[in-house]
Amino acid sequence: MRYLLLIRPDIDELPADWAPDARLEEEMGHLLEEMTKAGVLLDTAGLRPPEEGAVLRLAGGAVTVVDGPFTESKEMVGGYCLLQTRTRDEAVEWGTRFLRIHGPEWTMALELRELDGE
């Protein structure tokens, strides 16, 4: 079964002087390597900040395009992992490990969804 893990950090909760730290990067690399060696990780990427992106909406037959930055930036998707595991619980366990390597300064959600049509 394949699962998409959408990582949604709440950037507003981070301290103002926050900067990417080497420890997190190292542990992230380490975890991704572990996922690769377990034959679980199919694909992963981090996303550029939401203010560089755009939101397209369809309503009443009309499409509107709004460029960032967005006022409602709470828990925007920051990255994703695509996993293949035997069970949903295993995907949850990998997701838990992903969250756990982040320090206490982080507030984030991880949305786990199974891919349809398997």
Binding site: A38, R86, T87, D89, E90, V92, E93, W94, T96
Partner: peptide, 13 residues
């Protein structure tokens, strides 16, 4: 309540 399932998942992994 999720722990036994987490144990099993970690165990399998």
């Amino acid at each position: 309540r999720a722990v036994p399932r987490a144990v099993d998942a970690a165990w399998r992994i």
